[in-house]
Design a protein around this nucleic acid. Structure first.
Length: 217
DNA sequence: GAGTAGATCCTCT
DNA sequence: GAGGATCTACTCA
């Protein structure tokens, strides 16, 4: 049944009202609030003129050094997660399971390693290109469902780690869409069972009833 | 429909 | 040298 909303497919109309999120959006202290506010925003990639974009409908917050599920748990600082300690607004992309590229947004200020993992988007522009990248034949809900698929469809790889999200190649834009409280669900994060108690924290947020949301509802 | 194995490679210990 | 913020396909029922 996988369907996407036709009236949202008009890219030209969309790009006219897009506003790139300012650095100040990311450089705040409440990562949970930023995660919730990211729902409904548009993630855009523009690699050499090929534009693909999607509306964020699912993400997970990683709450710094006190969060055992985070790569920065306990203040861990390595070559891989160094960018998490940068100022908010940078991309953090890494390879998971040797196959999947996972796209995160760094938040908070310098030296506070907060990040938000983008887990699912609803395709808006460049769906044909997404099909090429993912090798799929039809644009059903599996196209951009789950963090691995999001990166694949939008063409995000580890080489895009450490990009500040305000250039014209990779950014997140506001189109005035906001979800109400009763449209946003909070739940435990996925695939972080190793984190003990922290695995149960309700740091995953998604839009109710979106077919693109991964995991169980 | 539910459960599980396999892919695949970089990063950290 | 182990294991991971995952996905898909395949089995079995």
């Amino acid at each position: 049944m996988g369907k996407y909303n036709d009236q949202e497919l008009n890219g030209t109309r969309f790009s006219k009202i897009m506003k790139i999120l300012p650095a100040g959006f990311y450089q705040r202290k409440d990562v949970l609030r930023i995660a919730k506010e990211l729902l409904g925003k548009i993630l855009v990639t523009n690699w050499e003129g090929i534009i693909t974009s999607g509306r964020i409908v699912e993400c997970e917050a990683y709450n710094g050094i006190i969060d055992k599920a985070s790569h920065a748990a306990g203040g861990r600082r390595t070559l891989r997660n160094e960018i998490m300690y940068a100022n908010g607004g940078f991309s953090y992309v890494y390879l998971c399971y040797g196959i999947h590229h996972l796209f995160n947004v760094v938040t908070n200020l310098q030296d506070v390693p907060h990040a938000i993992l983008i887990r699912a988007v609803e395709p808006i522009e460049g769906i044909g290109e997404m099909l090429l990248r993912t090798g799929k034949k039809k644009p059903d809900y599996t196209l951009t469902r789950g963090p691995g698929n999001v990166s694949k469809a939008l063409g995000i790889f580890t080489k895009h780690n450490g990009i500040f999200l305000s250039n014209d190649q990779l950014y997140i834009a506001d189109v005035g869409k906001k979800y109400g409280k009763n449209e946003i669900i909070a739940s435990p994060r996925i695939g972080v069972d190793y984190a003990g108690r922290d695995a149960k924290l309700p740091y995953r947020f998604y839009v109710k009833d979106s077919p693109y949301v991964s995991g169980k509802k």
